[in-house]
Design a protein around this nucleic acid. Structure first.
Lengths: 158, 158
DNA sequence: GCAATAAACGTTGATATCAACATAATGACG
DNA sequence: CGTCATTATGTTGATATCAACGTTTATTGC
């Protein structure tokens, strides 16, 4: 016999699950920004990635993956298309030749600059749905949710 | 010449962008729940999907995709592995033979019931990071973010 | 200096995600 | 009862995502 869960449980999970709610929001926002950036041939993830590179100190691959709360290998794959398009470059670190440092090319910087007004417009429209204090609380909560819980279990320490 | 964006802009986007913050949170939470469900061979998405099927009225594919704020075709792909494993069944609707209705099998119901305590435990730990009012505000905000903006532009009406 | 450990990264395989296009069934309307 | 728009879904191709495993370089202990 099957154990059919009572309907209350379904509602409990559906209404309370922060994981589900966040996945839903993430998909919806990704679609929205992907469409906004589409005229430039960029996705929301590529925009965020490149924005992180527009910094005084070029980050290493691992460090950037951490900043994006993304798997290293996902980032490696994402970089391939950006390198192919000449928007991003990678060079080995002088001091530590295990590390790859990531740079925005001139073309990458230009494209990013062109994408900025699109982001501002789209994000202003999105932000309009929240009061200032709501927005701040939301950002804080998302930061908490996006913070890595524990470093353990990465590749297993066994 | 390249237009290098000033560092303030980087900080603005990094600190303010709800899309980036949500993607980060979504990735972190997905990893967390995927690992929790791993002993049962389930992912967080499969758990959410199956929970939605544990309802009095079996939803159609399109309706479920909408409820999950997910592309139809993503859902089709996700269903394949669940069908292969005998956890989910699909039948054509009697009245409208275009529509596919999705059902949980007995095995699926049992596995879902086994996953529930894992969800409760994991989610309680997660929820402990928020006060009750914070949690409610967060859920409300995520619902807003996850709501489809406009139906237009789905497959383009051109 | 050399062996053992750790750190940074790459590769592979499986699934997830969505846009664009294609197919089949329904409904409306003449 | 056909035609035409609409609706529900399938298919394909490109990229995203992560775990598990392997490789190279640093670092630490002796």
């Amino acid at each position: 016999m099957s154990k059919k869960l009572p309907i209350e449980v379904v509602h409990e999970v559906r209404d309370a699950c922060l994981c589900l709610a966040t996945q839903r929001a993430a998909r919806t926002l990704a679609r929205r920004f992907d469409r906004a950036f589409a005229p430039l041939g960029l996705t929301n993830g590529q925009f965020s990635l490149m924005m992180m590179l527009n910094a005084p100190q070029a980050p290493t691959l691992g460090r950037l993956a951490q900043a994006l709360a993304m798997d290293r290998t996902t980032l490696t794959a994402a970089l391939k298309s950006l390198e192919r398009r000449g928007l991003v470059e990678t060079r080995l670190d002088e001091k530590d030749r295990r590390a790859r440092r990531l740079f925005l090319t001139n073309a990458g910087g230009d494209l990013l600059a062109a994408a900025l007004p699109i982001w501002r417009r789209e994000h202003a429209a999105l932000d309009a749905g929240f009061s200032q204090s709501e927005g701040q609380r939301l950002r804080k909560a998302l930061r908490t949710l996006g913070a890595e819980i524990q470093t353990e279990g990465k590749d297993v320490k066994a």
